[in-house]
Lab assay of single mutants.
Amino acid sequence: LTDEELVTMSVRELNQHLRGLSKEEIIQLKQRRRTLKNRGY
Rank of each mutant, 00 (worst) to 15 (best):
I27P: 02
T2S: 11
V11W: 15
K30D: 03
K23S: 09
R19I: 10
R32D: 01
R33N: 02
K37N: 05
D3G: 01
T35P: 01
L36M: 03
R32H: 03
V7E: 07
E4A: 10
E24S: 12
Y41W: 11
E4T: 08
I27N: 09
L36W: 00
E24V: 09
D3V: 02
T8F: 08
R12W: 09
E5P: 00
G20V: 05
E24H: 10
S22K: 07
E5A: 07
D3Y: 02
R39E: 15
L14G: 00
V11T: 10
R32P: 00
K23T: 10
Y41H: 13
G40Q: 14
L18T: 06
L36D: 03
Q28A: 14
I27H: 11
S22G: 07
T8I: 08
S22Y: 02
L29Y: 05
L36T: 03
Q28I: 12
S10E: 04
K37V: 07
V7G: 06
R19V: 12
E5S: 04
T8P: 01
R33M: 11
E13A: 08
I26V: 12
T35N: 15
E4R: 08
E13L: 05
G20R: 07
E4K: 08
R19L: 09
I26D: 01
E25D: 09
R19T: 08
G40R: 10
R34T: 07
L1M: 06
N38Q: 08
L1E: 00
K37Y: 05
R34S: 08
E25F: 06
S10V: 02
L21G: 01
V11F: 07
L6M: 01
K37W: 04
V11P: 09
Q16E: 12
Q31N: 10
Q16T: 07
R33I: 14
H17V: 11
L14T: 00
R33F: 15
K23L: 11
L6Y: 00
L36H: 03
E4Q: 10
L18A: 05
L6S: 00
N15K: 13
K37L: 15
R12N: 10
Q16M: 13
Y41S: 13
G40C: 14
Y41L: 14
Q28T: 09
L1I: 10
L6P: 00
E5N: 05
D3P: 02
V7I: 12
S22F: 03
K30G: 03
V11H: 10
T8K: 15
K37C: 12
T2G: 04
L1N: 00
E24M: 10
E5R: 08
R19D: 06
L14H: 00
D3E: 03
G40V: 10
I27S: 10
L21P: 00
T2H: 03
I27C: 09
I26R: 15
E13H: 06
K37Q: 10
N38F: 06
N38L: 09
R39I: 14
S22C: 04
